[in-house]
Design a protein around this nucleic acid. Structure first.
Lengths: 253, 253
DNA sequence: CGATCGGTTGAGAGAGATCAACGCAGGTGG
DNA sequence: CCACCTGCGTTGATCTCTCTCAACCGATCG
């Protein structure tokens, strides 16, 4: 994943609709040539089905801070992330925020094919996605049980991730939370073939805090502590995992 | 739902296998007459499909404290709860526990059709379930996309529940957690047609604590406080929701 | 009758929150 | 080019909510 500090030109607008027209036309080579497919739900599909999928898909691009959809919005599309990272968050009426998670390359957004979204999705980096019209996608799903099976598998995986995260939120100390977060992110990057020792952190400290049920100060302190303990090295835009073993020990998973 | 304080005779053994032989044979009238079906995934099925479902199902019964399956066990069956309540929990290597949730009447356990379970399921009350052999059930699912669709829908619902719970664990105070827990339970009971003002609490305080990321003492104190504030009335085996409005206010959802 | 179990209550301690100051980088405007 | 501002992150001092430890109560049971 390429994480640039920020897009040079400011966002053209926050309405993704203005962006839904293909900037580059359909991605070169289409789904068949797409290297994200291997790690995504699309892997369930074969030649002819892929063509159908491609027919209902558009490539869209978001600048950092641009909102893909808001909590409660009607879900008239579902998405597959092909580049960059999104933040998925929920707001409590009184303004408290929880970051449910981050959608990375290969992640499918709208897995459950819901009527309405339950989270807000915002780009953290420049993001590229395949946008599938929900109605058309649902029709495809009806025809291809294979695809539904794959979606369901993925939903099951998300469910276990959610369980892990609940355990983390409810029963772990601040240091364990931060260590586990870093390891979890590494595992997810590894799953999509990114195995660098340097972990890019496309999200800001506040996002991490809201994800782990901590304050920004505590996250900062714990990262500093891990750095002092030589488990990690804080670098611009991320951290270098100097001693993953130590980190695993601290994460107590 | 009938919640008795405890089964008079102690559990015959913790191995559910000893119980898997039908005690009462197939439930009288079978799936067609089953009144849990309406609120469960089985609602997706019609006449002939129901017969196939019934053919791969066995009714099994658990005594309180009996374990249905353990974390990491091979999932050779999936289940539908028809009576009673189960606790779904996860253990951290160091013994800390998190209660992921509670399976009530109509809940499907093993929604994701996983190879292995990720949680331990234990009966809190006398429990009755439909046990479906996983292989046979999976085969049925392959044949009836309808059913898979329904499973997937339900998984989506579970996912939003998990999101709600993450928000609760990460960003709410002890009092809010307890209030929200009671309201959430009421909502789930309502979903299956139980609308009594008195909320049965089949789980013990420790279970609630481990579910909410609190200690047993804090749960007890918060319940006492809610009682003193006249929002609830603590009664044997549960609580009476005296002032749900007040509770909603306190839950801040 | 003592033992055990689940729940409640109190006193004190501690992990993390809160409040506040500061540093640094990037952008902006004179 | 410099002064200023803003956003993000870090660090320190203090506070507070929840945990920990401990005692106690009532019910159940052998």
């Amino acid at each position: 994943m390429t994480v640039r500090p920020a897009s040079p030109e400011p966002s053209a607008g926050t309405d993704p609709a203005t962006n839904q027209a293909c900037r580059h036309g359909r991605s070169e080579g289409g789904c068949v040539a797409c290297d994200v497919r291997r790690v995504s739900v699309c892997a369930a599909l074969t030649g002819q089905e892929l063509e159908r999928l491609e027919a209902v898909s558009h490539r869209i691009v978001l600048d950092p801070r641009q909102i893909l959809f808001g909590q409660e919005d009607r879900a008239d599309a579902v998405y597959n992330v092909t580049e960059g990272a999104l933040r998925l968050s929920r707001l409590l009426p009184d303004g408290r925020r929880h970051v449910i998670g981050f959608a990375l390359i290969g992640d499918f957004v709208g897995l459950a094919l819901p009527e309405r979204f339950t989270v807000t999705a915002e780009a953290l980096t420049p993001v590229a996605l395949c946008r599938f019209d929900r109605r058309a996608f649902t029709a495809l799903v009806e025809d291809v049980p294979h695809l539904l099976r794959r979606l369901h598998e993925r939903a099951g995986y998300e469910l276990t991730l959610a369980q892990d995260h609940m355990m983390l939120l409810g029963r772990r100390t601040a240091e364990e939370k931060v260590a586990a977060f870093l390891l979890g992110l590494r595992a997810r990057y590894a799953r999509i073939g990114l195995t660098s020792v340097t972990l890019e952190l496309p999200m800001c400290r506040q996002d991490i805090a809201d994800h782990l049920g901590l304050t920004i100060e505590t996250v900062s302190r714990m990262l500093t502590r891990l750095d002092r303990e030589r488990a990690i090295l804080i670098v611009p835009g991320g951290v270098r995992l100097v001693d993953p073993g130590r980190l695993e020990q601290l994460a107590a998973s």
